[in-house]
């Protein structure tokens, strides 16, 4: 565990000193929050469209922001693999689990910081626009989005392990697009219904957003909060397990 924490410390410092982490992990979600709020102001109330009202938007952006955590995880892992740094680390007593924990923990911390900033920005927007917004609900949503952050970190480690530093970000872009569309971040999947809703329900992203939005609304019902949370948690366990397996196999192959 000490070795994993040492590696976590190194990764946190490396991430915090990369300007891209601020732009992608903090800046971009904030920009989207502001843009969508401006769009919301232009939507006539009689349209009945509530997707971009700050209470719902905050939940969507919480998850959208986490997709960039995935991108950053993939970049960190693939860049470490491309140089000799991991070779040096392989020659130390560190084992595969130390590496996976060391990559996961800092990104979870960044995801939490990102979530809290999104909540703070949403609160400010709610004061300006007068939209309904529950601070306790938003804080609960931040806590409830830890499994989804773990899931996206798992995706990131998986892509960073399996692909090089050029291919991994490209694949993450696909997941970012899929996550925002199929996650019902920027369109109302349940309102649309039909085949689109069925497709959305196949992927975990829909449940991530649904769970976060329900938490903000303090709707802790099984249908809207508990079941989606359980589904996302299951995906998080599977993805983290797959990431650990992939990293372990890659390490074994590198050392063969």
């Amino acid at each position: 565990m000490k070795r994993a924490l040492a590696f976590t410390g190194r990764n946190i410092k490396e991430l915090m000193r990369d300007p891209l982490s601020y732009i992608f992990c903090l800046g971009f979600p904030m920009i989207m929050l502001v843009i969508m709020s401006v769009i919301n102001e232009s939507i006539p109330p009689e349209s009945g469209m509530t997707l971009f009202q700050i209470g719902k938007l905050c939940g969507g952006i919480l998850i959208f922001g986490q997709t960039f955590i995935m991108l950053f995880t993939a970049l960190t892992v693939s860049q470490d693999r491309s140089g000799s740094f991991l070779v040096r680390m392989y020659a130390t007593p560190m084992v595969s689990a130390d590496f996976v924990a060391g990559y996961t923990l800092p990104l979870l911390i960044i995801a939490l910081a990102q979530g809290l900033m999104t909540v703070a920005a949403s609160f400010v927007i709610s004061l300006i626009s007068g939209g309904e917004f529950s601070i306790p609900g938003a804080l609960l949503a931040t806590a409830a989005s830890i499994p989804s952050a773990l899931m996206f970190t798992g995706f990131g480690i998986l892509f960073g392990t399996l692909f090089n530093e050029k291919a991994a970000p490209g694949l993450c872009s696909i997941i970012i697009s899929l996550g925002s569309f199929l996650g019902s971040v920027f369109f109302d999947a349940e309102g649309t219904g039909g085949v689109m809703l069925t497709i959305c329900k196949i992927f975990p992203f829909f449940y991530c957003t649904k769970c976060a939005r329900a938490a903000i609304a303090l709707d802790l019902s099984a249908e809207n909060f508990l079941i989606p949370l359980a589904i996302v948690s299951a995906w998080a366990v599977v993805l983290t397990g797959l990431a650990a397996l992939a990293f372990g196999s890659r390490m074994k192959a590198d050392l063969s």
């Binding site: 190194r10 410092k13 490396e14 000193r17 990369d18 140089g83 000799s84 070779v87 040096r88 020659a91």
Partner: peptide, 14 residues
């Protein structure tokens, strides 16, 4: 053992 690989394997931002 200690090893110094051929490419300088250091954490660049530290």
């Amino acid at each position: 053992i200690g090893i110094s690989p051929q490419d300088t394997a250091v954490a660049e931002k530290l």
